[in-house]
Computed example of a mutant assay.
Amino acid sequence: MSAPVPVFDGHNDFLLRLLRDPEAREATWLSDTGKGQLDLPRMRAGGFAGGFFAVYIPSPVAHDDPDFDAIMRNPPFSLPLPEAIPFEDALPVAMKMVGHLMWMEREGSLKICRSVAEIRAAMADGKIAAILHFEGAEPIGPDLDALHVWHAMGLRSLGPVWSRPTAFGHGVPFAYPSSPDTGDGLTEAGKRLVAECNRLKIMIDLSHLNEKGFDDVAALSDAPLVATHSNVHALCPSSRNLTDRQLAMIRESDGMVGLNYALGFLREDGKGEPFEGFEPMLRHLDYLIETLGEGRVGLGSDFDGAQIPPDLGDAAGLPRLIDAMRAHGYGEALIEKLAHGNWLAALERTWGT
């Protein structure tokens, strides 16, 4: 049996699993426990060679919160956004999550990468090539001092928001059907954040950012526009998906979009319910390739952060997705680009190395 095609992935929430159960950290990372969608054995079985490991600060959960998953299975819906999380509250949580990632590196099977050369070297050595990513900039204060601390620790990618507001901007609510035009643009602190990320060569992720914030980043940034885990609004009119106008701006900037595997962002009806096979994923890939070009599309799974198609299941199922691409008519050269080549090229355009 041939080795699986290496996949470099645009987004995962594995660190959130470790945050929620730190006592089981070793088993969660090193063993196939059958829980979640990622662990080292399933990554290796599926060809998951690396990707963006997100630091996401979870909102407090109240006992009277509604069943959001049930609501998202029955569109139309518009979920209320959680309250903003203060920098002082977010900072120690982010430190714990980055500590987990650094433990994974010390364990020896993963490398936190700060350049594309380091990514390529880690992949060649059989180590998981990890990019430290912030999904929401809550662990950074408006003075941006913490941005420099995190950069020194390896931060090379961040999204100014995860849907709820931050000191830097506003995200889209989880809503279907809905435009991403849902509020104000970047704050003055957000504009300074974009400029400093450009200076430090930190990739700016547009996933979760609302339309006015997207436009502000596009006007201010000198880097390619990137959405690490977003889909096509014309095929699924969720607030989290990208409009044709946004896709055109990404193309013009020589940017990148990673396909999100979340059910509700793939299905035309917006339902967070399972479907058989891979056709909705391939439909979004076809549209992205036609709109952006073959060199600006990749994968952005949202593993451990979303309900995904059951025929894919988890990281070990990635070869089934690759086989579906082949059956759909994608050639091997295109598959290599989608699986990892385009992400590495986009990072080179952003980081310079």
Rank of each mutant, 00 (worst) to 15 (best):
L91V: 06
A121D: 15
L38H: 08
T28S: 15
G108P: 03
R106G: 09
A62M: 12
S109F: 13
L30N: 03
F48K: 04
F52M: 09
S115Y: 09
R25P: 03
P60A: 14
M43N: 08
A27V: 13
M95A: 15
A129R: 00
S59I: 01
R114E: 14
L132N: 01
R120A: 11
A122F: 13
P58W: 04
G50N: 06
V93D: 08
P76I: 01
L30R: 12
D64Q: 10
Q37E: 11
K96Y: 00
L81K: 04
G36E: 10
G51W: 09
L30D: 10
G99N: 07
L81P: 00
D67Q: 02
E118K: 05
A45H: 07
V55E: 12
I131Y: 01
E23K: 09
E23L: 13
I119K: 11
P92T: 09
A45M: 12
R42F: 06
S78L: 06
L79F: 07
V116W: 08
A54D: 12
A130S: 09
I57P: 13
R42H: 08
S115A: 08
V61T: 12
A117G: 13
I128D: 06
D69N: 15
D125T: 01
P80G: 04
R73Y: 01
E26P: 01
D65E: 14
E118N: 11
I57N: 11
G126I: 11
W103G: 05
L81F: 00
T28Y: 03
P92C: 09
I71F: 00
S109V: 05
L101Y: 02
A24T: 10
D67T: 00
G46A: 07
D67Y: 01
P66W: 04
W103K: 07
A27M: 14
P60Y: 00
P92R: 04
S78M: 05
V61W: 01
I128G: 11
G36K: 02
D125A: 15
D32H: 13
M72H: 00
L101K: 07
P92Y: 06
G99T: 05
D89E: 15
N74V: 04
D67E: 12
C113S: 12
A70R: 07
M104L: 14
R42D: 10
I112F: 05
E88M: 14
S78R: 13
A129L: 10
R120V: 05
M102N: 02
G34L: 08
S115W: 03
H100N: 02
M95N: 05
G36R: 00
I128C: 13
